[in-house]
Design a protein around this nucleic acid. Structure first.
Lengths: 100, 100
DNA sequence: TGAAGGTGTAACCTATTAGGTTACTATTGC
DNA sequence: GCAATAGTAACCTAATAGGTTACACCTTCA
């Protein structure tokens, strides 16, 4: 399967937003997960799970990260959306009857 | 607030994915909500709520619509992401301590 | 006029999930 | 040894997706 639309789509599994957060934000600011969790107002457990790709980036978390870093909230929402899209495209299609 | 990044962002509230679905898909295929719900394998109640913008487009629903219409699942995920982004940008920012 | 199909909505229930607290273990640096 | 960090497991709560059933209110058509 290779067509034009694939040019704009990631051919390989995109990074989980949490991994991006860990590599780009935490390492960039030289912040520990513990300290970042304090500043974001979320539990350390939750932020570790997120940073290791075990839980998705909720809207609430996206807003907090955006507010704390000055980045746009769209960045994190779109990272999650791209990740979700990849997963959806690589799971089996639901049982539906075609329209039209 | 007007800067370059806004050029790429919707200045007005984007349509809820359900409204797009109603206008573009249902009207395009001349399908009733009831019939579309049957084909998608979801309840009529749920699809009415979605089509009227009362519930978000879940990943499951996005996959079903994509499978039934032949559209990419990314369309619906991104419509929802854009809608979520607009809402997040127009709600008050959470209480966090800035990084860096 | 009455039956049939479509629509919106409300009440109620269930399964899933985001997220918290606490606690235990392991690691690293002073 | 001690302090801080990290990963993880058990447990709990609140929110939410989504289902079922039922009711009222259209249209349309025989």
């Amino acid at each position: 399967m290779t067509n034009v639309s694939n040019v704009l789509k990631p051919r390989f599994k995109p990074s989980h937003p949490g991994l991006v957060f860990k590599r780009q934000v935490l390492e960039g600011y030289e912040l520990s997960i513990t300290e970042a969790a304090r500043r974001l107002g979320v539990s350390r457990k939750h932020l570790t799970n997120f940073s290791n790709g075990h839980v998705p980036c909720s809207l609430d978390l996206a807003q907090r990260i955006a507010a704390a870093t000055g980045s746009g909230v769209a960045v994190w929402i779109n990272l999650q959306a791209n990740y979700d899209t990849w997963l959806a495209e690589h799971s089996d299609t639901p049982d539906v009857v075609a329209f039209g």
